[in-house]
Design a protein around this nucleic acid. Structure first.
Ligand SMILES: [Zn+2]
Length: 272
DNA sequence: CGAGTTTCCTGCGCGC
DNA sequence: TGCGCGCAGGAAACTC
């Protein structure tokens, strides 16, 4: 599942691959993957254009066109954006393909069709982007900012970490990993976290995201980077997907539980 | 406003 | 080996 580190890896890859390339043609294989324009309108807006800048906000990738318009991409669970050379084999789940003048292509594939590419005048017009919380790797994400965003909410901390309006870019993997590093149980009511615990959590979020970016993300399922290659942070996971294993901190057994309808991985012995 | 529930979609793993 | 079923999950849309 692409979360902040995976989307950031793709952003960096595409920045290198696509700079200065002109789009000659677009092929829409699944119209449901396209938002903000009809297929015909999309072709008209995109053909002949080039990408000028590659941004990210939370798990959204923002591709700026030379017209000033943007493509806002969300990979959701199984979306992949990969740059291919002429002759590379097309992914089975290819949904939208951008062709470039040199014969290369950018392929958006998405097995479960949850992801999308939205054409917009600018990123600010998209409601979910307007409501996005602080970027955890920016300077304004302080432990005070985290506390303020949690705003005395009484619900359990884990679902709140998945709420993009509280912190941008965390998903099931990195919420679990950050809570384990901070030794906080997923069920703990957010308003009962102490000052030191919030500081530890804040630090854990930043550290795990930075380490994951350095490892080019977690390829637990279908995730691939901008070159179609796997990341390797999954081998560094301490709780996510590690049910039945021993906790590296306390020797306890990692469990997987369904909590609030989501798979939740944690160590009941050292996460309190 | 917050909190809970449903929906989207399809490959995979499981049980028989 | 083959079949059918249930599961996984981010976030929008909905209800209470
Ligand atoms: Zn432990």
């Amino acid at each position: 599942m692409p979360e902040l580190p995976e989307v950031e890896t793709v952003r960096r890859d595409l920045t290198r691959s696509l700079a200065g390339k002109r789009i000659t043609q677009v092929e829409i294989l699944n119209t449901g993957s396209l938002k903000g324009a009809t297929p015909k309108g999309f072709l008209g807006e995109i053909s002949g254009r080039s990408f000028t800048r590659f941004g990210r906000r939370g798990k959204y990738l923002i591709l700026h066109l030379d017209t000033g318009k943007v493509l806002v991409v969300h990979l959701k669970m199984t979306g992949v954006l990969q740059y291919q050379q002429k002759g590379d084999s097309l992914p089975r789940a290819a949904r939208i393909i951008f062709y470039f003048s040199g014969g290369q292509r950018l392929v958006f594939s998405d097995q479960r069709k949850f992801g999308s590419i939205e054409l917009a005048g600018d990123a600010g017009t998209i409601p979910s982007l307007q409501e996005m919380g602080p970027e955890p790797l920016e300077k304004d994400f302080t432990s005070e900012a985290l506390k303020e965003r949690l705003g005395g909410r009484r619900g359990p901390i884990k679902p709140l970490l998945l709420d993009q309006s509280i912190v941008a870019g965390l998903g099931n993997i990195y919420a679990a990993e950050a809570l384990h590093r901070a030794a906080i149980a997923p069920q703990r009511p957010a308003d009962q976290l102490s000052g030191p615990e919030l500081k530890k959590l804040h630090r854990a979020i930043i550290q795990v995201l930075k380490e994951a970016i350095a490892a080019r993300g977690s390829s637990v399922d279908t995730y691939r980077d901008g070159q179609g290659k796997k990341g390797w942070f999954q081998v560094k996971h301490r709780v996510y997907g590690k049910q039945g294993n021993k906790c590296r901190r306390c020797g306890g057994t990692i469990v997987k539980e369904i909590f609030r309808g989501r798979g939740t991985y944690w160590c009941p012995k050292c996460q309190r």
